Computed example of a mutant assay.
Amino acid sequence: MSTVLISNYHSAPKSIQEEAKKALSFYPELDSVEIDIRFKKEIKKSTMQAQPQFWSLLKGKKGRRYVIFISKKIKITDSEFSTKLIPSHVIVGWLGHELGHICDYQNRSTFNLIRFGFKYLFSEKFIKEAERNADSFAIIHGMEDYIIATKNFILDNANIPDSYKNRIKRFYLSPEEIMLLIEERDQKLKTE
């Protein structure tokens, strides 16, 4: 799968370069942050995963590089979806969520980020907080239509088992919570 440079600091697989450009356009503060979007054969318990490149942690916040891994085939329990068959706006939403994680990571010290990784591995309460934060970043950045489309793709898809849908409901923002965040964001914008 060929990767293309989509800006001075960002690269993505050619097959989703337009979706990557679209998602990144909502995050101008990441314009000069190195982000490499790559396909990976398989990601356990996830579809996409954003993380700092390990050695870049030694360079401090300004020198960090990030990778967003995308599973080539999205396996949700017994159902499997090729990334090629997922609607474009859903891919943009998924990428927007992962970019929300990167915004969160950019606000953390190296030590805090390492601690974050360990907590994410061992605490469901922390996973819920981290995933809701990423959704919140995406919504604050104006990506609510894409985030809602991604959630609807999962929750309304008859081929996706209830166990996975329940995980999404448990860890991520609900459509009602998204609407509340949109109202808060819009009120804040009116007062500025």
Rank of each mutant, 00 (worst) to 15 (best):
I102W: 05
F69L: 12
K190H: 06
S25I: 06
K21D: 04
S25P: 13
Y120A: 07
K44L: 11
N133K: 14
D36Q: 10
N8Y: 04
G60Y: 07
K165H: 01
K151I: 15
R108C: 07
R170K: 15
F116T: 01
S46P: 00
L181A: 10
K41M: 03
P28L: 14
I102M: 04
C103F: 01
A20Y: 09
I16H: 02
F26R: 08
L5C: 03
K165I: 10
Q187F: 09
I140M: 12
Y120P: 04
L99T: 09
K75Q: 14
E42L: 07
E19T: 02
S163P: 05
V67P: 02
A20D: 07
K125V: 15
D31L: 10
H141C: 08
N152H: 13
N157F: 07
K75V: 15
L5Y: 03
D31S: 15
D31V: 04
F137Q: 12
A12M: 03
E144T: 06
N107H: 14
Y105I: 12
H10N: 08
K165A: 04
Q53L: 13
Q53Y: 09
R132A: 09
I37E: 00
F171D: 03
E19P: 00
K128A: 12
E183I: 12
G117I: 03
E129L: 13
K119G: 00
Q17N: 05
K14N: 11
W94M: 14
F26N: 08
K45L: 05
I6G: 05
V67T: 14
I160N: 01
G63E: 07
I147N: 03
H89S: 13
A138P: 01
R185I: 12
I148H: 01
S32H: 10
I139Y: 00
E144R: 06
R108K: 15
